[in-house]
């Protein structure tokens, strides 16, 4: 399968300055990250606040450029000026705050914003807006003002705005951090549908462990480095290590972990309620 994203010893540093603008020091936000994402995968990047995951994500859309190392998006080097717009079209980005990324005053106009920028002909913009709103099931709200939508709905509009640009890959930078549990579910469902139905590569950045259970691959970041990598099952089996990294595991996984520590022979790890029931039945 083709590689959608690959980074080669990616380093990103920024200079800290005090109030007078003097250099206080250099912070390494991303530290020698090597990461490969294949086309069509659903990837999750986990990490506590300040672990460098958002900084890393912004490299995938050429919003930030590496201090050292290289980032390739669909084979294109992000450092090259001439690749910039193609990369931004192919790798769309959804941000954390739903209010701060909607530009249009009407839902459909916001979804059309990307295609407008790309110079897509008017008629095709309308087609793209239609299909994108349908893909996130927001077509009923096309004439609404974004200010009247819930957080989850706003994020779905943002996702539609990215789909309308016909990307190969969507990077979602903590899209659920400001939402309530329903909003979170709506957004994750939309992301999964995109991945499964449309075959779009999805990179989900989050600190909610429940959201990554179905990912193809999970990367865990700490202090700018990738410290764990594997399938959700592989990652969630290391409860202690996750705790050290300021992360948790889903409550069922935690329960199973505690039971195992108390001597019940339960396989490691448990990711869903169903698995727990089956495992306990086997113990009987």
């Amino acid at each position: 399968m083709k590689e959608m994203i690959s980074t080669d010893k990616l380093v990103f540093e920024y200079i800290r300055r005090d109030e007078e603008g003097n250099v206080e020091g250099i912070t390494r936000a991303v530290d020698e990250v090597d990461l490969r994402v294949k086309q069509g995968q659903f990837i999750a990047i986990l990490g506590h606040n300040g672990s460098g995951k958002s900084t890393l994500a912004k490299h995938f859309n050429a919003l930030l450029f590496p201090t050292e190392g290289e980032v390739y998006i669909d084979g294109m080097l992000t450092d090259k000026e001439e690749n910039l717009w193609e990369i931004r079209q192919e790798a769309g980005m959804v941000f954390q705050n739903p209010d701060n990324q909607i530009i249009g005053q009407v839902v459909e106009e916001d979804v059309g914003f990307g295609p407008e920028n790309m110079g897509v002909p008017t008629e095709e913009i309308w087609e793209r807006v239609d299909e994108s709103l349908k893909a996130v099931r927001m077509d009923k709200f096309r004439k609404s003002s974004p200010n009247h939508l819930s957080g989850g709905q706003k994020q779905r509009v943002s996702i539609a705005g990215v789909i309308a640009m016909h990307p190969k890959c969507i990077i979602m930078d903590e899209p659920t951090a400001m939402l309530d549990p329903n909003g979170r579910r709506e957004v994750i469902r939309a992301a999964r549908a995109l991945n499964q139905v449309e075959g779009i590569t999805v990179i989900l950045i989050t600190h909610y462990m429940e959201e990554v259970v179905d990912a193809d691959r999970v990367f865990v970041m700490d202090k700018g480095r990738i410290v764990m990598e594997g399938t959700p099952r592989q990652v969630f089996s290391q409860v202690e290590k996750l705790k050290e990294l300021r992360l948790g595991v889903p409550q069922v996984t935690m329960l199973a972990y505690e039971l195992r520590k108390s001597g019940l022979p339960i396989p490691d790890p448990i990711l869903s309620r169903k698995e727990l029931v089956e495992a306990l039945k086997a113990c009987r």
Binding site: K58, N61, L63, W85, R88, Q89, G92, M93, F95, N97, N100, Q101, I103, E108, E109, G112, F113, G114, P115, E116, N117, M118, G119, V120, P121, T122, I125, W126, V129, G161, V162, M165
Partner: peptide
């Protein structure tokens, strides 16, 4: 945030823009 979101959606001024 908004400036970044606009850039991420390929906004680069009025040049070459079409209208919905």
């Amino acid at each position: 945030d908004l400036a970044m979101a606009m850039e991420a959606r390929c906004y680069r001024g009025g040049e070459g823009r079409t209208k919905m």
